[in-house]
Amino acid sequence: MSTSAASPSLSRPRHGRMIAGVCAGIARRFGWSTTVVRVVTVASLLLPGPQVLAYVVLWLLMPNDRD
């Protein structure tokens, strides 16, 4: 069974970016609020772990919008 509504692809928008557009692209792909994704990302930086590395990897791997 297939649906006719395709979900947006995982890409970085050209408009509405703060730094690289990673959070905006993730929010758009999953239908979440961009503000919530950004706040969760910044809050996660307070915890130990490879969050900055993950952000940079996504920045490099996520393509820009084709618009």
Rank of each mutant, 00 (worst) to 15 (best):
Met1Tyr: 15
Met1His: 13
Ser2Val: 10
Ser2Glu: 12
Ser2Thr: 08
Thr3Tyr: 15
Thr3Ile: 15
Ser4Met: 13
Ser4Pro: 07
Ala6Trp: 04
Ala6Gly: 06
Ala6Met: 07
Ala6Asp: 08
Ser7Val: 11
Pro8Arg: 08
Pro8Lys: 07
Leu10Pro: 00
Leu10Phe: 04
Leu10Asn: 04
Leu10Cys: 10
Ser11Cys: 10
Ser11Lys: 11
Arg12Ala: 02
Arg12Leu: 05
Arg12Tyr: 01
Arg14Cys: 08
Arg14Pro: 00
Arg14Val: 04
His15Gly: 01
His15Ala: 08
Gly16Leu: 03
Gly16Asp: 03
Gly16Lys: 05
Gly16Ile: 04
Arg17His: 06
Arg17Thr: 06
Met18Tyr: 06
Met18Cys: 14
Met18Ile: 15
Ile19Asp: 12
Ile19Arg: 15
Ile19Ser: 11
Ala20Asn: 11
Ala20His: 10
Gly21Cys: 03
Gly21Ser: 09
Gly21Met: 00
Gly21Lys: 01
Cys23Met: 10
Cys23Glu: 10
Ala24Tyr: 00
Gly25Val: 02
Gly25Gln: 05
Gly25Asn: 01
Ile26Trp: 03
Ile26Tyr: 05
Ala27Gln: 06
Arg28Lys: 05
Arg29Val: 05
Phe30Met: 13
Phe30Tyr: 12
Phe30Thr: 06
Phe30Arg: 12
Phe30Leu: 12
Gly31Met: 05
Gly31Ser: 11
Gly31Arg: 13
Ser33Ala: 12
Thr34Asp: 14
Thr35His: 10
Val36Gly: 08
Val36Met: 12
Val36Gln: 10
Val37His: 09
Arg38Asp: 12
Val39Lys: 14
Val39Asp: 10
Val39Asn: 14
Val40Gly: 04
Val40Met: 08
Thr41Gln: 07
Thr41Glu: 07
Val42Pro: 06
Ala43Met: 10
Ser44Tyr: 00
Ser44Ile: 00
Ser44Pro: 02
Ser44Trp: 02
Leu46Ala: 03
Leu46Arg: 00
Leu47Ser: 12
Leu47Ala: 14
Leu47Thr: 02
Pro48Thr: 09
Pro50Ala: 15
Pro50His: 14
Gln51Ala: 13
Val52Asn: 10
Val52Arg: 03
Leu53Phe: 13
Leu53Tyr: 11
Leu53Trp: 09
Ala54Glu: 07
Ala54Asp: 06
Ala54Gln: 15
Val56Asp: 09
Val57Gly: 03
Val57His: 14
Val57Tyr: 05
Val57Lys: 13
Leu58Asp: 03
Leu58Trp: 03
Leu58Phe: 07
Leu60Thr: 09
Leu61Glu: 09
Leu61Tyr: 04
Met62Trp: 02
Pro63Gln: 02
Asn64Pro: 14
Asn64His: 14
Asp65Trp: 06
Asp67Lys: 04
Asp67Val: 03
Asp67Asn: 02
